[in-house]
Structure formats: C-alpha cells, structure tokens
Design a protein around this nucleic acid. Structure first.
Lengths: 184, 184
DNA sequence: CGCAACTAGTTCACGGATATACTAAAAACG
DNA sequence: CGTTTTTAGTATATCCGTGAACTAGTTGCG
C-alpha cells in the first residue's frame, strides 16, 4: 500500500468533468492507494451523481419556476397519492425528518395548498391533506414533471429501466446485514 | 383520463414506508390518473431514494462524527485525487456551485485541512490543495467510508454492480436530446 | 490602445434541513 | 387509577447550499 504523504503529480486531464472524474478516481485509487473496494466507490459515486443531476434538473426546470421546492413537491406528491396522512407518516414516506415536514407544512398551508386538521382520535397527531387548489396544482405539476422524467428515462430501453429499478431495489432492501442510519 | 377532483379513498396500507410507497404511487398513477409514463416515475423515484438513503447513512455514520459535512468530504476527496485544482474545476468535479466551493473552502482552510494559493498566471483564480494534515485525514476517512461502501455494494454481485454503473452512466450521458439544467 | 464582453471568485440574503430540546397526549404497567 | 415511558408534533439555533449581485482580472476586437 502506498503511503499517503506526497500528492503524486499525475496526468490529470484538464478537461475533466463531473463524470470523467469518476474514472480518474478509480484509476488513482487502485494504482496509488492500493487495495480498496474500488468498485463499491464507483457504484456509490455514480449513484449519487446520477441522482443529483436529475434532481437538480427537475427542481430547477419545473418546481422552482412555480415557487415550489423539491421537498415541497415531494410532500405534496405523497399527500396526493397516500390520501390524508399523519405528519409522521408523511415524514416516513418522503424520507424527511419530522421537523422538516412540520416546517414545510407551515409554508404550504399558508400558501393555500395544504390543510392541517387535528386528528379526532389522537390528540397529538395531525392529518395532512391537500386543498382543492393543492390537488389541481400537484396534478398539473406532476404531468409536467412526468414528461421530463420520461425524456430522461427514455435513453434507456424499457427492459433496461426495469433492471435498473430492480438493482436499486436490491441495493437498498437487502441491507439488513448492518445497521443503517436513518432519519429520526 | 380521470379528473383530478376528488381524493379517491383507496386502500392505503398503513404499514407503508419509504419504499413501498413507490409501489402505491405506481398503482394509483396508472389506475386512477390515467396515461402517465409511469415507469419513468418509478425509475427516478427509486434512483433518488436509493441515493438519499445511502448518502444519509454515510454522512451520519462517518462524516458528521468527524465534524465534516458530506460536501466537505466531497471537496476534499476531489482535491485529493485531482491534485491542486482551480476552485472552478473543483465546483465542476464535485457538482457544487462555485459559491458553495468558496464557502466550504473558507471552513476547510480555517480548519487547517486545505490551502488556497493564488494562481501565478491568472490573477483571478485560486488553486486549492490539501495540507499535510488534510491529506492524511482524507486518507483515513476514505478508508473508513470505503469499508461501509463495500458493505452497501456487496448485496449486489460484482456483475450486478457493473451493470448498475453502466445503466446509470447511460442514463446520464446519453441525454443530449434535451437541454439539461446544471448548476452555474 | 481602449472599451466591451467575459470569466473567476466572493459576498450576501434567503430558504431548507438538521439536531436538540420542549410540550402535550396516549400507552403501559404496577 | 396514578406514575412512568413512549409517541406526535413544534420551536429554536445552526449549518449548508443556492441564486443574484458585485469586484476584479483577462480576453477580444474595432
């Protein structure tokens, strides 16, 4: 294993970008840094980058122009599809913290897109639902986003898309071997 | 196509979670909402969620405890592997905005992990590099992260991992058909 | 040359997300 | 029943990242 003292000068192509960097990383990690689980790094680096690129594109082209944040969209989307939900459940389904949901809700309620009604049975919890306007907005926004999602996904064939989903599912689901950190 | 007026009450299993929600979304979108590019939604939803779960896990188990943010790690990682880089390039390679790099650099420099030296040829730009300590830190941190990356990735066989990388690459690279929004 | 256009980096105001600590309601349990 | 523990949600402080506006250095071109 190489020591980590000197920054070995290496041919670093100056036309490097977000993507070709992964290759560079791969090369340097294996040749200079010695035994690492290099493929694992590549998988996760690629996963992250793909996700970020797509998310940023959707957020900036669709949601921001309408004054909605990415998280705002997610919360509305979840509420739209999972019916009225407890705040807690919304947090689980969107993958945000409960605090985040609480804050976001405030914004969306004051914007007239969501409603927060106290639960009758349980005095602690709150039911989130969309207002009439919220419902029609999310419908329209989803339609728009879906077109763009389609444009993204279409560079893969349908079988490829299914395999991708399957692999990602497997990556996340079969992870009971170690204790994963999750929000809350 | 169904109208988007009433929130149709539907059996929403109350044991719904982050992952099974994708199924529910799929079902409702196709049965009630009519013709959407449903598979596209599924692909991108899954992509995002997988990325978020893994990122959150790595950040909270490895980087936060050491007082480093996820972005801080990324910036150091890039600087480590791509040698001294201009701030602009670092932004490209990490996928952050130039402003983010500028802010982060301040923190890392004052923490003694990075150095910022003005470029001799171009009076506007700045070269970023790691300090001795930064270099040894990132080496150690990477080692640690890599173990956990390995644990994550190992639920897939090696060929599966390669296919996953390939599909993600394709998803992102072959997208010249439409104009993707990127930072800066 | 000299002015316009561009480029690199920084600063600032803002929104969003987190962790922590808190309030209040419900459940558990003797 | 009453006390303890758990659970739902919210307020606060803080950090991080963004876009936009700004400064300053460089390049292009008449």
């Amino acid at each position: 294993m190489t020591d980590d003292a000197a920054p070995v000068p290496v041919e670093v192509p100056d036309s490097l970008d977000f993507w070709s960097f992964i290759e560079l990383a791969n090369r340097r990690l294996s040749t200079e840094y010695g035994s690492t689980h290099e493929l694992a790094t590549q998988v996760l680096l690629t996963l992250n980058r793909a996700s970020n690129v797509v998310t940023y594109d959707l957020e900036s082209s669709i949601h921001r122009p309408r004054g909605l944040s990415w998280s705002g969209f997610r919360l509305m989307f979840v509420t739209w599809l999972a019916g009225p939900v407890e705040s807690k459940t919304a947090a689980k389904l969107t993958g945000m913290s409960r605090a985040a949901v609480s804050n976001l809700t405030k914004t969306l309620v004051s914007g007239g897109l969501m409603e927060r009604t106290p639960d009758e049975r349980d005095g602690r919890s709150v039911q989130l639902s969309l207002t009439e306007r919220g419902r029609s907005e999310i419908g329209e926004i989803y339609r728009e986003q879906n077109e763009r999602e389609h444009a993204w996904a279409s560079v893969l064939t349908e079988p490829e898309q299914r395999i991708l989903v399957m692999l990602l599912d497997k990556l996340i689901t079969n992870r009971s071997q170690f204790d994963v950190r999750g929000r809350n």
